[in-house]
């Protein structure tokens, strides 16, 4: 779980290029979208692709996305639950 969370934070900073923040500064329960890290719907699309690329896990509909994209913790949990 911790490794997945750390990797996700790295992805946010390096691949989505969040500015003015380091992976260590991102809180596990901090909201990813809107207030919080401020990701938008375009970032959501990129994040879906990145999760597929790095973890081979597909988020295939919005119901799943809503649950997964709350925070780093929920996203990591989703990945662990859906990884073969």
């Amino acid at each position: 779980m911790e490794t997945t969370k750390a990797k996700l934070k790295e992805i946010l900073v390096n691949d989505l290029k969040l500015q003015g923040i380091t992976p260590e500064e991102i809180g596990d329960t901090e909201p990813l979208f809107g207030e919080g890290l401020g990701l938008d719907s375009l970032d959501a699309v990129e994040l879906v692709v990145l999760i597929q690329k790095y973890f081979d896990v597909q988020i295939s509909d919005m119901e799943e996305g809503k649950v997964a994209f709350v925070s780093i913790e929920s996203l990591a949990q989703y990945i662990l639950d859906h990884k073969d």
Partner: peptide, 15 residues
């Protein structure tokens, strides 16, 4: 008007 502007579902459809 759904979550993330329907982008996740649209991406899944394209995939």
């Amino acid at each position: 008007e759904g979550g993330f502007g329907g982008m996740v579902d649209s991406l899944a459809a394209l995939n």
